[in-house]
Amino acid sequence: MAEKTINPVLKQILELGPTVAFFVLYTRIKDDVFTFGGTEYTGFIVATIAFVPVLLIAMAILWALTGQLSRIQVFTAFMVIFFGALTAWFNDERFFKMKTSIVNGLFAVILGAGLLRGKSLLKWIMGDMLPMQDEGWMILTKRLAIGFAALAIINEVVWRTMSTDAWVKIETFGFPLALFLYLWVQIITLQKYVIEPDKAPEDNA
Rank of each mutant, 00 (worst) to 15 (best):
W159A: 03
A47R: 10
D165N: 07
T66C: 12
F107S: 01
E171T: 13
R71K: 15
V46I: 15
L115S: 10
T172W: 11
L86V: 12
R143A: 12
E202V: 05
T27Y: 02
L10F: 06
E3H: 09
L86M: 07
V24L: 13
G38T: 08
I102L: 11
E15Q: 10
T87W: 00
G136D: 00
L190H: 12
F148K: 01
K199L: 14
L14A: 10
S101A: 10
L181A: 08
Y182L: 06
L14V: 07
V109L: 14
A21S: 13
A50V: 15
L10A: 11
S101L: 11
E15V: 12
G174T: 12
K97A: 09
I187C: 07
T5W: 07
V20E: 10
E40S: 08
G127R: 14
F95I: 01
P197I: 05
F175N: 04
I153M: 05
F36E: 12
K4T: 11
I13M: 05
V168K: 07
A50H: 03
F90T: 14
T161K: 10
D92M: 14
E135Y: 00
I61K: 07
T172R: 03
N104E: 08
D134H: 14
V157H: 05
M162T: 10
V103N: 00
P176H: 04
F44T: 00
I146Q: 06
L151T: 01
E93F: 04
E3M: 13
E93S: 03
G136V: 03
F44N: 00
F51I: 08
S70R: 15
F90Q: 10
G105R: 01
A113Y: 07
I125N: 04
L111E: 07
Q68L: 15
